[in-house]
Amino acid sequence: MSAFVALDGVSHSYGAVGGSAEGTLAVDGLTISVEAGEFVAVVGPSGCGKSTLMKLATGLQFPFKGAVRIAGNVIRSPVKIAGMAFQAPTLLPWRTTLDNLLLPLEIVEPHRSEMRRRKPEYIERARKLLASVGLGGLGGKYPWELSGGMQQRTSLCRALIHEPQLLMLDEPFAALDAFTREELWCVIRDLHAARKITVILVTHDLREAVFLADRVFVMSSRPGRIIAERPIELPRPRELDVTFTPAFSDIVQELRGHIVRARQG
């Protein structure tokens, strides 16, 4: 299998004109490759350039050194195939939950040109997606009428409605309480299993990374690069019970060791 997303010796900095080495280096010599359909988690100490990795992989920013390839092609503009979700749900308060979900379809081709003709079909698709994350019947509510967990589910749905090939998650569960967070782990796990999409999850929660991912990458402190790569062989489908097994704890401990060293180094 060839890599679907590949960052090859990528360096990126902020603050300098044209993003040269003179600014603050965010990532330096970052190499990472993700197979199609794979679930990858990236962990690291805070400020290690995890979010920069997200922006580079989706073509929102470009490195001054190295190359970012998606499906073999070097990207030179935003990718148009990615769904993104962040720590903040960033829903539009003037749109109902259902209309928030339709937003990507109003932008991405071919849906954009077919919006008028296929609207009933799209609304049905949005309803089904909402139902699949436990929000059935809530499409008519406004985001501010929903709880934080419900808003984050909606945000995930919005990232998925246009059936992207690549799902980028930037600490999407960080602002939620522990129970809601674990519920949403399962939501994401099932969505990934059902749709076979490629997922890159940036997180600082090691248990989250181990529970969800096929492979976990550990980043060094700024400027960020990959210092460890750990395949997670725990069999799928994984239930939440697996997080209490010794095998699971061992992997979390091992990753914690890497992070501790990264913070010191």
Partner: peptide, 13 residues
Amino acid sequence: EPELEDVLKALGA
């Protein structure tokens, strides 16, 4: 919100 801008740009907006 810059995040919202990113969401839309990553869709090709």
